[in-house]
């Protein structure tokens, strides 16, 4: 019986851990990318003819800002599927 309980606790721990890991890990990139996009929009509003380069640099910046989010996603998957 207590193996069952141990199993249940382990699964619960994994679920909570993965949830927290991804949840908290998503805050940083969210704020960072929001900032980047808002500044890019301001730039585009001020200079519409530079919209092309602004957009590609913004996308590239957002992709790099996403790295920490992707790290926490990978760790969450490791917790869920490998641990």
């Amino acid at each position: 019986m207590n193996e069952l309980i141990a199993e249940a606790i382990a699964t619960a721990g994994k679920a909570i851990g993965a949830g927290l890991c991804m949840g908290i890990g998503a805050i940083g990139p969210g704020v960072g990318e929001g900032n980047a996009v808002s500044k890019a929009l301001e730039g585009m509003a001020r200079q519409p003819e530079a919209a092309g380069t602004l957009r590609s640099t913004m996308i590239m910046g957002c992709a790099i800002a996403e790295t920490t989010g992707i790290y926490s996603l990978l760790i969450a998957f490791l917790i869920l599927f490998v641990l």
Binding site: A63, E66, T67, I70, Y71, L73, L74, F77
Partner: peptide, 16 residues
């Protein structure tokens, strides 16, 4: 490490 994990994380994470 960051270059590899960023690319791998996006593609593999999307699949999962």
């Amino acid at each position: 490490v960051s270059m590899a994990f960023r690319h791998f994380g996006n593609v593999a994470g999307g699949g999962v």
